[in-house]
Amino acid sequence: MLRFVLVRLLQSIPVLFTVITATFFLIRQAPGGPFDADKPVIPAVKRALEAKYNLDLPMWQQYLNYLGDLLRGDMGPSFKYPGWAVHDLILSGLPATAELALYALLVAIIVGVLAGVCAALKPNTAQDYIPMSVAMLGICMPTFLLGPLLVLVFGFWLNWLPISGWGDLPGDKIMPSITLGAAYAAYVARLTRGGMLDVMSQDYIRTARAKGLPERVVVFKHALRGGLIPTIAFLGPAFAGLLAGSFVVETIFQIPGLGRFYVQAAFNRDYTMILGTTIFLSTLIIFFNLLSDLLATWMNPKLRHQLRGQSV
């Protein structure tokens, strides 16, 4: 197991390196720079600013400097928020974004797994078609449509839930979580349905029925373990996608999260901020992929054995 994890971590080094390099040079290709504002800046001031942040050095030197700083754990200062370091900004936005992503993931798992299991138990009946059609709708509906729709219905018409904020009013976390989690719930439902259908036709399910086990035991004890494996393998990429994709929801509901910084940094050409956020999110994506792979492997006793075997 330890070896498995180590190998995967080593494999992620070139991935991260490529991400850093590509982002570093791509962002420099974008027209404009961090100190081009709406009002023209006096050339001398701009030069002084660029010199202060070493932007006047040759590109390759800036790149090497950045890599050196990164190795020391320094993501550099933000160009747009003077006095703030990039990692401070990331850490300030992270809690809200992480919490939002976590709740959205819970929504996705609970709704998705239930819908998927329901559909798989009676394939090609109304019990299958209805949740799967809703799931398709969930995949197709963009968050910038679903969010305002929920706000309209539950915020204005029914007046049940607060329409914005994060942790200020009771219940204000519900709508953002549902908005962000909906599309992922739909994916989870489809994956779960497929996995369960596959497992339900296995011989060992027939054995379980022949043993006279109640249907709930057959479904939830015998079938679900195998049926959930594709879903679990999907959860890692899903959580990473939730973290990185929360910008729209954060904007709609005015949540002080990471997504906001990310998009603003791109608009502002805040080079260090873009790089910092990209590296941070890439690391998280790699980490969560590893985690869900480990979990999916652990769920299968045969592969679990191999994990153990490798650790010796």
Partner: peptide, 30 residues
């Protein structure tokens, strides 16, 4: 009745046992 008075065994013992549960767990279920 399936679980008590009539029992069944199948052809392929490779696919008829649940790979995710221990032998013991599957044995005691009935």
């Amino acid at each position: 009745i399936r679980g008590t008075d009539i029992a069944m065994i199948f052809q392929d013992p490779m696919t008829c046992l649940n790979p995710f549960l221990t032998i013991g767990e599957q044995l005691i279920e009935p």
